[in-house]
Design a protein around this nucleic acid. Structure first.
Length: 670
RNA sequence: GCCGCUUUAGCUCAGUCGGUAGAGCACAUCAUUCGUAAUGAUGGGGUCACAGGUUCGAAUCCUGUAAGCGGCACCA
């Protein structure tokens, strides 16, 4: 091996460095400014410490705060270490476990000392202060390589049972090497970590992080394991970035569908029916508008609509496999007349069970099975706005996004194998149309592949996965622009699954659409068709949804639009507001004309100032306010004030009616 | 389901050392007829989540239950 290494830099130049030198040496050789600014290095594309010696010729790019993604990742990871050290300094006996960087910060899972309560929000200010002290001390982060045995010994001696367990089991590389990397940081504080890290804690901005909350988390994410305290922080490169992030959080909170749902009088939830939504008239108007739109789209795409029973005998669910696989999420009902005597239990406990449907698919197969199906009947696209109940864990419930009673825009398409690709393509096209109409032009498509636990033969999986992949490719959407990626092991136990993740106005993604190929249920419920050859064949069943559920999708739309729904979806599309009571009659006429044109309109003739009315309806996110005073009444005009616009526009009543009518028309009817 | 926190008027929230509950908005009535984000006055409204306990006395302290919130796990 040569005693000089050739280090090529991003600008194309090559430097000769003596063996044993590090990226930090290169930075110093280039200039003191860069030496100071350097945070880490990319050596042959891999992010490493500045102090990691080269092991041969290499390409080098020094990472500075300008390389924001890398710099943030490094800083957040360092913050996590500093957090853990601070907690252990303040609360000796705390055990540390694991603390990675996250999308906007970092967390560390810790176990409070024996006999002490888990950490709480009240502990955070002191921990933050201790973290700042560690950062200001500006001690280097030093990498060392230890043998597994030595590290296990160290953790065991320190009473770090989680770390010891992890050091025991951690697979370092493919060939199961026995050397683990550790980092010293702060005040001689050691953590096991693959790195890389910043050269010293002084590179962190002590004003650029904030501890946000504490939460429970399981050791290694398993419910059976010990419950740890997870301390979450958000961390950035500068206070300015932190403040911007905190502002973004405030903005997101303002969009919260639970808050807007109450303010706009759309729905409510209450403990007596927790997990089920009480839709108020205005909220249900959104639902009805969305449902009518979806029904038109499905009609146009060749679907037939059905309605199936809410409750079926447990025997049916046993046959479909749900009783075995899904029972813990099902609401079951005894099939008996309740005892009406004062004495004795209401239910004997000896009756047969029935269950509320958690899914629509078995019932759809039961409809399919009525009568003999020919290959000519396929594809058969059977849709249902199916109301399902799932007994979700209490802690999983969230506003109207995650509920126990919900309605899916569900459909099952029964196809012959040779029709599958075309049907998948047609579905992708329909979904694309719907998402664009609803204001979500950006979405990603993922293919979730076979999980370890699964039904069916490998041949069937090969075929199903390839069919989905081919179909998406045929639509031209299996591209980076659509975030196309394949997710090994994430499929359902009976089928691979296409997932459609839409992106909302503030960059969050939501999985809504789904399409699964299922060969298991047709088998279990004995669905068949007679082929050209006169023999019976199994159809393939596609489970598919575009919105997912109305509850969740409406919640997403409320947050996406911050309550300011497009006019066609807004429950109240216009309010006619009077300035003086002399204009009341004219307001009634304006309202009548708008209503006749199909606009959802209300009249506000309350004895309030126009300022009050403007504010009131603006806060309720009414898209159009038609203000009428004496002048408008005399001239037959309206002053149209559109939500979010600076100024009102005066126009003739006929003009306003035409304008609002056009905007109130759903996109598929324009 | 698990961990932590929370629960006071329709809504948002105060309520000190345990002494029997308050504001703003909303609502009602009256006055005001007003030109683009809150007109004024007056009034009604609370089993302090629920059930126990401690105490002469509990919104306040303790125990339990429920729901909500933030996570975890789960998931549409």
């Amino acid at each position: 091996m040569s005693d000089k290494f050739k280090i090529s830099l991003p600008d194309g130049s090559v430097r000769e460095m003596p063996a044993g030198s590090t990226p930090a040496d290169v930075a110093a050789a280039i200039g003191p400014g860069l030496a100071k600014a350097a945070l880490a290095a990319r050596v042959d594309g891999e992010l490493v410490d500045l102090t990691r010696p080269f092991d041969g010729d290499a390409s080098l790019a020094l990472v500075t705060s300008r390389d924001e993604a890398d710099a943030l990742e490094l800083a957040r990871h360092d913050f996590a270490h500093v957090l853990a050290e601070a907690v252990q300094t303040l609360f000796p006996g705390t055990q540390i476990t694991f603390g990675p960087a996250t999308d906007d910060g970092f967390y560390y899972d810790v176990m409070a000392p024996e006999g002490r309560e888990p950490f709480s929000m009240d502990d955070l200010p002191a921990i933050e202060e201790a973290m700042r002290a560690i950062i200001r001390a500006d001690k280097p982060l030093r990498r060392e390589v230890w043998s597994r045995a030595a590290l296990i010994d160290k953790w065991t001696k320190d009473g770090e049972s989680f770390k010891a367990e992890w050091a025991q089991e951690l697979q370092v590389d493919e060939d199961g090497g026995d050397e683990l990397t550790v980092y010293w940081s702060g005040n001689d504080w050691l953590d096991m970590c693959r790195g890389p890290h910043l050269p010293s804690t002084g590179k962190l901005d002590p004003a650029a992080f904030k501890l946000m909350r504490v939460a429970g988390a399981y050791w290694r994410g398993d419910q059976k394991n010990a419950q740890l305290t997870r301390i979450y922080g958000t961390g950035w490169l500068s206070k300015k970035q932190l403040d911007a992030h905190l502002t973004r959080l405030e903005e997101a909170a303002k969009r919260d569908h639970r808050k807007l749902g109450q303010e706009m009088d759309l729905f409510h939830l209450q403990s007596e029916a927790h997990g089920s939504v009480f839709w108020h008239p205005k909220g249900y108007l959104i639902w009805r508008t969305l449902e009518a739109y979806m029904r038109r789209r499905l009609d146009g795409a060749g679907y037939v609509e059905v309605k199936t029973p809410q409750v079926m005998d447990a025997k049916q669910w046993e046959q479909s496999g749900h009783w075995g696989k899904y029972r813990e999420n099902m609401f079951v009902i005894p099939d008996e007349v309740p005892n009406t005597e004062d004495e004795g239990p209401v239910i004997s406990g000896e009756a047969d069970w029935m269950a509320l449907k958690p899914m629509n698919c078995p019932a759809h197969v039961l409809i399919y099975r009525q009568g003999i199906k020919s290959y000519r009947d396929l594809p058969l696209r059977m849709a249902e706005f199916g109301c399902c109940h799932r007994n979700e864990a209490h802690g999983a419930l969230h506003g109207i996004m995650r509920v126990r009673q919900f309605t899916q825009d569900d459909a099952h398409i029964f196809v012959r194998q040779d029709q599958l690709v075309d049907e998948v393509r047609a579905f992708c096209d329909l979904l694309d149309l719907v998402y664009k109409d609803l204001g979500f032009p950006d979405y990603a498509i993922k293919l979730a592949l076979r999980p370890e636990q699964r039904f069916g033969s490998d041949e069937m999986w090969d075929w199903s996965e390839a069919s989905l992949r081919d179909a998406v490719k045929a639509t031209g959407r299996a591209t980076e622009q659509f975030g196309w990626e394949e997710l090994p092991g994430e499929g359902a136990f009976y089928a691979p699954k296409l997932e459609f993740h839409l992106t909302d106005a503030i960059g969050r993604t939501w999985q809504c659409g789904t399409l699964q190929t299922d060969t298991v249920l047709p088998e279990r419920l004995d669905a068949s068709y007679v082929g050209e050859d006169g023999e019976r064949h199994r159809p393939v069943m596609l489970h598919r949804a575009i919105l997912g559920t109305f509850e969740r999708f409406i919640g997403i739309m409320i947050e996406h639009y911050a309550g300011k729904l497009p006019v066609w979806l807004a429950p109240v599309q216009a309010v006619v507001a009077t300035i003086v009571s002399d204009a009341d009659d004219y307001a009634a006429e304006v309202t009548a004309q708008l209503a006749a044109a199909g606009v959802r309109v209300e009249t506000d003739v309350r004895n309030e100032k126009i300022n009050y009315k403007v504010r009131d309806h603006s806060l309720k996110k009414v898209p159009h306010l038609l203000v009428v005073g004496k002048r408008e009444a005399e001239e037959g005009t309206v002053a149209l004030r559109t939500l979010g616009a600076e100024h009102q526009k005066v126009m003739s009543l006929a003009e306003a009616v035409a304008l609002l009518k056009a905007e109130a028309t759903p996109p598929d009817l324009r």
